[in-house]
């Protein structure tokens, strides 16, 4: 039985057909260029996603400016693609965070998540002016 994928390496979006061969390799057809083969292998054998979400801000004990009042969440993301099947675990860990201000963009919030080498980082600076 063959599996179907749409290659997203470029805007053409080739419709790929993939056969799983006995020795664990893949036979890819429908691709217009070699990148289709690479994409199919990554996507079927080791799919990964960059996770971007938001985390709660810990406002307890802070007298923050009015302009910050409507900002309830801080954007965060993984600094590299993470195995797709573990994305929900990354999300759960992000949602459990309470981020203290001030914070600088790029600050590591979760280091080396589950030994993957992937970090979760803050995707914006917040509250630095209030401190200065």
């Amino acid at each position: 039985m063959s599996e179907e994928l749409i290659c997203i390496t470029c805007p053409i979006g080739c419709h790929l057909s993939i056969e799983r061969l006995p020795e664990g390799k893949l036979a890819v057809s429908g691709n217009r260029c070699p990148r289709g083969i690479k994409y199919a292998n990554e996507e079927l054998l080791n799919p990964k996603r960059v996770v971007s979400a938001t985390a709660a801000i810990d406002y307890s004990g802070i007298e923050h400016e009015e302009s910050l009042a409507e900002i309830a969440r801080i954007p965060v993301r993984t600094d590299a693609a993470y195995p797709k099947e573990g994305v929900n675990e990354v999300l759960a860990a992000i949602y459990a965070l309470k981020v203290k201000l001030p914070i600088k963009r790029g600050t590591i919030l979760l280091a080396d998540f589950k030994g993957s080498g992937v970090n979760v980082i803050a995707a914006r600076s917040l509250g630095l002016e209030a401190l200065a």
Binding site: V50, P75, R105, A123
Partner: peptide, 21 residues
Amino acid sequence: IHNGFGLIEFNEELSGPEFAE
């Protein structure tokens, strides 16, 4: 907050807030 900004301008994949900053 999603990724994919800045490949042309900064030569790396950033989220929107990072690009703006």
